[in-house]
Amino acid sequence: MQKTYIDTNILIAYVSGPQKDPFQYPKAKRIFDEIKQGKYVGVFSTLTLIEVKGVLRSLLGRERSLLQTIDMHKQSDFIKKESTDTYNILLAELLKLPHVKFEKGKQTNFQSILDDADQIMDDIKGFVKFYNNCGVCKSNYKNSAHKQILVADILHVLLAKDIGCDSLITFDKGFNTLTGNIQIGLMQIIVR
């Protein structure tokens, strides 16, 4: 059976549900259905689980009205506790999923991953984007930015390759930059 590395955004879309993430949830559900049916083994790395913790804290940090009701010295403790509780519930269910493998990269040579990541950064180039409006409030705001794949994305791909995954599946189009890169080898990057 093939091993497919599941990117964090797929897991987050699935646990968010159709109301919260109406665009990506149906695609995430299809992927989890495929794992359930045993079409492939879904692989979750420790890096992914760490990101899930970060995502949960980030989501709670957006709850402005809720946070305003909490003493300012206790807000970060609240976020940490709430996100930890949620993570524990989520992980308890994740551990029950058949056709799922957890990988901590015990055999991973981190030095070689970093060398490959360094080489990828040398190989790729991004693109420049110009902005005329603020992305949040839409007011006039002229700016420009250089966009390229994130370092963490590169580490996910190299870790997936290192732990013997046949493919990595993600919603993030930024990963397309790495398709065909020599450091990735034969591992397939699937962007849905």
């Binding site: 968010s16 549900g17 919260k20 559900k29 957006r62 519930i89 269910e93 994740l94």
Partner: peptide, 20 residues
């Protein structure tokens, strides 16, 4: 697991790619 977070997030909609 499907939708497990739904009632724990107050925000109306989230974009998983954006959040990650």
């Amino acid at each position: 697991l499907s939708g497990l977070l739904a009632n724990r997030i107050k925000s109306k909609e989230i974009d998983s790619v954006d959040v990650v």
